[in-house]
Amino acid sequence: MHGTVFPPIEPSEVISTFFFIVLLFGSFMTVVIANRFIPAVINVSFVKGYSVICLFIAIWEMISFSELVNPVLLPPASRVASMLVFLWSIGFLQSQIYATLYKLAYAFSLALASGVTLGVMISYYSNVFSFIESFATAARVIPAPAWLALSILWFGIGSASAIFIIWLGCFFPIFLNTVAGVAKVEPVQVETIKTFGGDKWDVLLDVVLPTAYHHILTGSRIGLGIGWITVVTAELASPDAGGGLGWMIMDSRVLLDITSVLCGVSAIGFLGVVTDSLLNSLEELVQTWG
């Protein structure tokens, strides 16, 4: 009624541009000083990378502040930051993050279990299951989001349909990489175990899995990336997929609340980096065991 096109949802306290720049500079200086005292944790390359990120955010803030681009279309970084704080304080952001991560974790662990099991089984009984390869080749090139309409038809609205397509997206990279990893097993090692009286399970635990773990982890990292794309697509495309960050982005877009849209995007990017580095550190951990 006031003739304003600003979004209907307002953060309770807006950080001013000046204060935001001071905060950004302060955080950068903190990182630089921390590099002096704890170089083992915060190394030089971290400082370099962080400085470039800070520079980008500062440029973004300046573009919006000077109104080079319409601030309604590209809200300043300070506004996005205050919106993030606001959404976190009312507990809305946490519930959306939980909804997204729940679906992703459910489907990913399902895909890991089924992909590794099937991959090992098919390599063991390759004579019986060789026809599966021709089906897998065909199913692999159909991207998981293409099954969305059918999965809603089969599993109904709600998280189940989203979980199905995320599982489908994560499954193929893990499965195919497991098969490729098991193919690397050397027959000499298997025969050695059998000669010394080991059974099938000894072969699996002592030879097959240690040989294939590297491929399995590569497959899981690719699968996780595809899983993130698929979970976001499922939430964007169907508002009934159990909420989540993608739903938050789409819902805010309809309200022209671009600040919240950018909040959702940055939250997804942050969570993506966290999950990817978790898998990366798992890979390093397993490598030290092997």
Partner: peptide, 26 residues
């Protein structure tokens, strides 16, 4: 590469469809 790698890594981990609503407005 050392300077830009972390920010590129962050951009890489954002699923492209997530920025689709923003791009539609833009």
């Amino acid at each position: 590469y050392e300077w830009v790698a972390p920010s590129l890594n962050f951009l890489r981990m954002i699923p492209p469809p997530a920025i689709l609503p923003f791009l539609i407005i833009l």
